[in-house]
Design a protein around this nucleic acid. Sequence first.
DNA 1: TTGATTATGTAACTTTACTACATTTAGGCT
DNA 2: AGCCTAAATGTAGTAAAGTTACATAATCAA
Lengths: 286, 286
Amino acid sequence: MDLIQRISAEQQQLSKSERKVAELVLHDPETAIHRSIASLASLANVSEPTVNRFCRRLGCKGYPDFKLQLAQNLAKGTPFVNRHIEESDNVDELTQKIFDSTLSALSIARQSLDSRPISSAVDALVNARKIAFFGFGASASVAHDAQNKFARFDTPSSFSDDLLVQRMWAINSEPNDVLFCISHTGRTKALCEIAEIAHENGACVIGVTALDSPLSDFCRIVVSSNVPEDTDQYMPMASRIAQLVLIDAIIAGYTLKRGPQFREKLARVKEGLKGSRFQKSPDSSS
Amino acid sequence: MDLIQRISAEQQQLSKSERKVAELVLHDPETAIHRSIASLASLANVSEPTVNRFCRRLGCKGYPDFKLQLAQNLAKGTPFVNRHIEESDNVDELTQKIFDSTLSALSIARQSLDSRPISSAVDALVNARKIAFFGFGASASVAHDAQNKFARFDTPSSFSDDLLVQRMWAINSEPNDVLFCISHTGRTKALCEIAEIAHENGACVIGVTALDSPLSDFCRIVVSSNVPEDTDQYMPMASRIAQLVLIDAIIAGYTLKRGPQFREKLARVKEGLKGSRFQKSPDSSS
DNA sequence: TTGATTATGTAACTTTACTACATTTAGGCT
DNA sequence: AGCCTAAATGTAGTAAAGTTACATAATCAA
């Protein structure tokens, strides 16, 4: 656990004066690392030894050591604590918080990543006859995004958030077909049904979902993201971003595995998109 | 340019004694940050002021400042630099790289953020009569995602990636209607046309796009993300993630501005979604 | 070689952080 | 309440670290 997290964790157990220091540091860590102990102390309205004791309580050797660790912590760029949004936040604070918690979730997901299912997914895709991406609600747009990327490839792919279309696809599925079922919770009844049908037909069902969920029972491969609870209480935020990035990784793996002449094709596809744009600086699709 | 790079760059122009210090630091930076100026000086067989002068020559305020910068430099260690994917990467490396570059892009976007257009967008939405989210290609799924979130709210909202549907909406648009046009480059001809029509009808066109792009000419508000060039050469990766997070921020601002009784409604919507799921741990939509 | 210029080191000084101790504050018990 | 104990906080002195001013040594051009 890094220093900033340690401070916010221990904040409760600190004494009154020490908590003043903690608040100051958490509120503006940048400032702290450029100040002397005396200046920080007076800023927090406490004495110098209090600041020193505060540092030691956090496991530092002294104030200079504390500054050093804090500096490193900041440089690492994971001061993204899941700070919850408050009624009093202005738009600027709020925006920063949203970015922070997304970054935080992504970086946690990155650490607790299992590349094996991703690898299996790539293998399945390379041999796929046709591919589909299904999901509902917020996961539908993730599926949509994934299909959009596969549209660049030469294997037939489809997306749907329509129950009946999905069911038809599943019923017609065969071995060597790949079905991506996307659901954060893995508890959406309708999607489980679809997955079951495809699974029974011998298709390779890949779940971008939670491990040990009802949906995962029907999946040959489960790619899970292990993001912390969503910051926002009303709708998925960070979880779907993690799903997108996971799928990006699968796509990158696929692109690589298909070899150089496949990537030439991709370059041609990209070139071909230019016709739809006002020219100036050639860029990726949008 | 970071400190270590700066040292090796200036190494040639340094005097004999100062070069000794430079070599020492480059050879073992870890040690340097934990030593006092005296200890470092004796280790390099030079005097203390020499070390001090060395620090200043590198643009630091003094030795403590030098240590701080060096520490930050080291902590960055394997920063989320846009490390390009290589043929030889295995799936694990590749996945890490994809996550890294996404994190990198997001954190850059976070730093160079202008909250004013976000704030204006929130204001426009609060007064909106109807709202639409349009985009093509990868941006279509972003628009899809945004609409999915607005489906929870009480203002009529729609999404389309269909040229004709979009055009019909634009033609029917009026003042107080809000149109989100999503495009990374802001150069997609079709979308510009739609934006122009809506704009001429007096609707509030909000571009989630690049500043100074053709599209931005028809936008009353431009929310831009300033992400670095996309890592992947073939398709948008990081840029669309940044778009999503920007829209998340707008939504969070909107939710907050609508006040507590509006959030109660949201809670009811979330509760209502449960019926579509296998129960166990209630969670957000998927 | 010599004078000027730059590089380096010495020593005094200033700032910074730490330690030991005194004072205050808070909580428990009669 | 009033007292006692223990914890928390601050004061003042001390040690250590960093900086500055100046003196000496090295380098180079004429």
